[in-house]
């Protein structure tokens, strides 16, 4: 589904190139639940941003199915971005001025989903995450775990095939983190491809594949087997 070939990402400084990613070759198949791990600065977030089409400033080739993303036009890339990807952030990044309901609604608006359809999608999501009673609250009125649930609901509202999560539990305590990971597992079982970056080894156990990164390179790539 996704294939990266010789991806380099670097910053030109005055005296040398500082590589953030160097020579990344990676293939991810549909239905995988991939965990990126590694110390700070290893390049996890950068790789995730490139995968999620948020960063277009790199060298190498990015194939999505049969399409070479690096050669795509802006318009095509943007529509691919809309239809295939959902994002979850460490700091939740909900829009403070919008209610829970409206936050979930926003990506649907950008996808021009009709009003009735929006209502039913959001109703289902609220129901699924037990947040029906909280739909008119603003982010500031929710706990961190609840905010991240809204973040997930928002990310999957547009029914993306790939979910990208950057340290989704980084700001949560362990109980809430466990809850979030269980949701991920469920989504994975429903067929969504998930790629997450994390520091926590226990989070990787929910996935199917673990990629260890170090200094901008892939250090280890192993399959996680569930007993």
């Amino acid at each position: 589904m996704i294939q990266l070939k010789e991806i380099d990402k670097f910053i030109e400084s005055r005296f040398q190139r500082i590589f953030i990613l160097k020579g990344i070759n990676l293939t991810i198949n549909e239905g995988e639940f991939v965990t990126l791990m590694g110390p700070s600065g290893a390049g996890k977030s950068t790789l995730l941003n490139i995968l999620g089409l948020l960063d277009e400033d790199y060298a190498g080739e990015y194939w999505f199915g049969d399409n070479n993303i690096t050669k795509m036009k802006d318009r095509e890339r943007s529509s691919l971005h809309k239809s295939e990807f959902g994002y979850i952030f460490q700091a939740y990044h909900l829009i403070d001025e919008l209610t829970v309901y409206e936050n979930i609604e926003t990506p649907l608006l950008y996808r021009k989903v009709s009003s009735n359809e929006r209502k039913s999608i959001i109703a289902n999501l609220l129901d699924r995450f037990n947040m029906v009673a909280k739909k008119d609250l603003f982010p500031a009125q929710l706990s961190g775990g609840q905010q991240q649930l809204v973040g997930i609901a928002r990310a999957i509202a547009g029914k993306p095939r790939i979910l990208l999560a950057d340290e989704p539990t980084g700001n949560l305590h362990s109980g809430q983190a466990k809850e979030i990971m269980e949701v991920f597992q469920e989504l994975h079982q429903e067929g969504t491809t998930i790629i997450q970056a994390t520091h926590a080894r226990e989070n990787a156990d929910y996935g199917t594949r673990l990629i260890q990164m170090l200094d901008g390179k892939i250090d280890q790539d192993e399959v996680i087997t569930h007993v």
Binding site: I95, P107, G158
Partner: peptide, 15 residues
């Protein structure tokens, strides 16, 4: 921040 977020969620420039 708001702008970046909206873009990540798929907002086009026109929107």
């Amino acid at each position: 921040k708001e702008v970046g977020l909206r873009k990540a969620m798929g907002a086009g420039r026109g929107q």
